[in-house]
């Protein structure tokens, strides 16, 4: 779990079941799927039946089989990537009524992308139940060229769009689902500290 003093970064308190919701939509990745299994174990038997789980991650056939077994009797869909998972989530929300509860479990980019998509449907970020699992990698927006660099595990990091070396600030935008990257050697060009792999 990410424990954070960054005031702009969301808190991910962990998944707890809303037993009243008439349907549950759960988006997770491979690591997050374990949190979903635990969620199901904390709720009654019908909770999983009312649930649709999107695993947005590349799974091996055996992993997929395990997930199907662990998450039954929930409806399970496996999408090959986070972006495919978000497209599927949007499709689903397009026709959904009130009374559903949204859950997200996995890396911070996954949670952030779910929260970001849900906002378009009028779902308040605080009503989404979230749990951080797996890698600490971050999504970073370059404040200069506005490009996003995905799956960032180091600080500083090279912007995958404009090539500047970015210091990853502890400042998070929910609207962009990203941390802020700022040129690290603007004052003294070339004065770049070594990259440290701190978001493994």
């Amino acid at each position: 779990m990410t424990i954070s003093t960054i005031k702009s970064r969301p808190i991910y308190p962990g998944l707890s079941p809303d037993l009243n919701a008439r349907s549950n939509i759960i988006v997770c990745d491979k690591a997050g799927a374990a949190a979903v299994t635990e969620l199901f174990s904390r709720a009654d038997a019908t909770f999983a039946k009312r649930s649709t789980v999107f695993i947005a991650d590349a799974l091996q056939e055996t992993e997929a089989a395990t997930a199907r077994k662990d998450l039954a009797p929930a409806t399970l869909e496996i999408l090959p990537s986070l972006s495919a998972g978000i497209v599927r989530l949007r499709e689903f929300l397009d026709n959904a009524p009130m009374g559903l509860r949204l859950y997200a479990a996995g890396t911070e980019p996954l949670i952030g992308s779910v929260v970001q998509a849900a906002a378009d449907y009028g779902i308040d970020h605080l009503s989404i139940r979230t749990e951080h699992r797996g890698s600490l990698m971050r999504r970073v927006q370059c404040v200069h060229c506005k490009g996003f660099t995905e799956n960032v595990t180091t600080n500083p990091v090279t912007c995958s769009h404009c090539g500047l070396t970015l210091f990853v600030r502890d400042h998070y935008s929910r609207r962009l689902a990203a941390f802020q990257g700022v040129c690290i050697d603007a004052e003294n060009p070339g004065d770049v500290p070594p990259m440290e792999a701190i978001y493994q």
């Binding site: 349907s23 509860r101 605080l126």
Partner: peptide
């Protein structure tokens, strides 16, 4: 509303 699964925020 709560029993209908409406989130507090709404």
């Amino acid at each position: 509303a709560e029993l209908q699964g409406w989130p507090q925020e709404n």
